[in-house]
Amino acid sequence: MDSFSSPSSGSSPSQPSPEVFMDQLKTQLAQAYAEEFLETVRGKCFTKCVTKPGSSLSGGESSCVSRCVDRYIEATGIISRALFSSQR
C-alpha cells in the first residue's frame, strides 16, 4: 500500500501514466487480498487441524490441512453465492 503515497520509484516520468497507475493499483489490491486470505486460512486450519502440536506435522494433520484449505475456498464461494444470487 505504501507505493500509493510515494510516486512509483524507478519508472521514468515523475508522474506515472494512468494505465500504469491502474495496473499497479489492481496488482497491489490483489496481492493484499491474497495475503489476507492466506493469513485467515492459516489461522482457521491451524485451529482445526493442529490441535496438539507434536514434533512434526503428522500425516493426519497434513491431510486435514489439505481438506481444510479446500473447504475454506469452497465456503468462500458458497457465501458469495448466498449474498449475490438471492434466488437461493
Binding site: K48, C64, R71, A75, T76, I78, I79
Partner: peptide, 29 residues
Amino acid sequence: AKLTDVCWDKCITGTPGSKFSSGETTCLT
C-alpha cells in the same frame, strides 16, 4: 471474507471433511 470467517466458525464444527455435508452448506448460506 468477513462472512466466511464468521460463518466458518459457526457452521463447520468438526474437522473438515473431503466434502461439505448438506447441513454445513445450508448453514453457510
